[in-house]
C-alpha cells in the first residue's frame, strides 16, 4: 500500500514534536533527516513558521539551529488535540 502523503500541518506537528523531544532545539539538517524531509522543503516551511513566531532560527558556527518558541509549544498542544479534526476535514494550511 502506498503511504498517505502527509499534510503540511502533520509535518509541522512532527517537526515541533522532534524539537520538543530534543530539548527545544536541534540543527536543521538533523530535523530534516529525522522527519524524512528535503532540506530545502524544511527551510521553506521553517521560513513560514518563523514569520508566524512558531520557530526561531539561530546560526551557530555556520549551522542553522531551529528553536521552538512558546507560541510553537502552544501550537503543538493545539495540533495534538485537533489532529483528527484537521485530518478528517482536510483543514491544512
Amino acid at each position: 500500500m502506498v503511504p498517505r502523503k502527509r499534510t503540511r500541518l502533520e509535518i509541522v506537528e512532527a517537526i515541533l514534536e522532534y524539537l520538543v523531544n530534543s530539548g527545544g532545539e536541534a540543527p536543521a539538517t538533523r530535523v530534516a533527516t529525522a522527519n524524512g524531509l528535503a532540506y530545502d522543503r524544511l527551510m521553506s516551511l521553517v521560513e513560514d513558521l518563523q514569520g508566524k513566531g512558531i520557530l526561531l532560527v539561530n546560526s551557530v558556527e555556520g549551522r542553522k539551529i531551529l528553536v521552538v518558541t512558546s507560541r510553537g509549544l502552544e501550537l503543538l498542544s493545539e495540533l495534538r488535540r485537533l489532529r483528527r479534526v484537521i485530518r478528517d476535514f482536510g483543514l491544512d494550511f
Binding site: 502552544e74 501550537l75 493545539e78 479534526v85 483543514l91 494550511f93
Partner: peptide, 20 residues
Amino acid sequence: ISLRLYRLYRLLKSINILRG
C-alpha cells in the same frame, strides 16, 4: 472544536483553519 480551531487560526493565520 470551533474555539480550538479559532485558537489554531490565531497561531497560524490560515484561512483553511478559519473555514473549519
